[in-house]
């Protein structure tokens, strides 16, 4: 009997620059290496039943990536995690595995994401830069041009941000942001940075971005996907 298992895994520094497509191919192979047989679709070109939660932009690391895998011969969750971790390249690590109660695809559940930005200013003192970012985010609205395939439009990212915290940490500004994510409304973390970089005159390094959590909505409140 095949069974759907939901995994939470992390994408670390070593694999920061692999794309979502590469990640999917890598996971599929890791299941094969781990000796965990996945169910395949029917038809001319059968492919394994493996689906992913919200894709990460290239260059972003994460503690909260999710995938649903339909497994042919179910094993205890602990063993699945152990086998998979042995077969994964460095930088990818599975933390949890559960048989989900709801049968909805993991992608369709996601409603919010929490990101951490760590960034170093290049031409101003750290406290000045911290205040600058606070001021930008404190504005009523923060408009930025969002380019889609055909057209570009102005959006107010403040509409999509639920909460944020900006503080100084040594030489860095650390900023944590909870925002819309998923198929209904999605705010790409790179766009948040693009907005800040546009509104400030100070220069900084490119921030290191990490996704800390991915959430679904239950009773109007965000709760972790698993």
């Amino acid at each position: 009997m095949s069974e759907t298992v939901r995994f939470q895994f992390g994408k670390g520094e070593q694999v920061r620059f692999i794309s979502h497509l590469d990640l999917m191919r890598c996971m599929e192979r890791s299941f094969r290496r781990a000796g965990i047989m996945l169910s395949h679709t029917e038809g001319f070109n059968p492919h394994p039943k493996l689906s992913f939660g919200l894709p990460l932009p290239v260059g972003v690391i994460s503690k909260a990536c999710y995938m649903d895998a339909v497994i042919e011969d179910l094993l205890p969750m602990e063993e699945l995690i152990q086998r998979l971790n042995k077969a994964l390249p460095e930088g990818l690590k599975v933390f949890h595995a559960v048989i989900p109660e709801d049968k909805k695809a993991v992608m369709s559940l996601v409603s919010h994401a929490r990101y951490l930005f760590v960034v170093k200013p290049l031409d101003c003192p750290i406290d000045v830069f911290t205040d600058e970012i606070k001021n930008i985010l404190n504005q009523e609205s923060v408009y930025i041009e969002k380019e889609t395939k055909k057209k570009s439009k102005m959006i107010n990212i403040k509409d999509m941000i639920q909460s944020y915290e900006v503080k100084q940490d040594g030489d860095n500004v650390v900023m944590e942001i909870m925002c819309d994510a998923g198929s209904v409304s999605n705010l790409n973390p790179m766009l948040i940075w693009k907005a800040i970089a546009m509104y400030t005159d100070y220069k900084s390094e490119l921030p290191s971005v990490e996704r800390l959590g991915l959430y679904k909505t239950e009773n109007g409140k965000p709760v972790p996907v698993i």
Partner: peptide
């Protein structure tokens, strides 16, 4: 190799190694 550099090129994973 800073993130800044890698973020700016096509297919950065070709330059970072770490493959299985």
């Amino acid at each position: 190799l800073s993130n800044q550099i890698l973020q700016g090129v096509e297919k950065p994973a070709a330059y970072t190694g770490g493959e299985y």
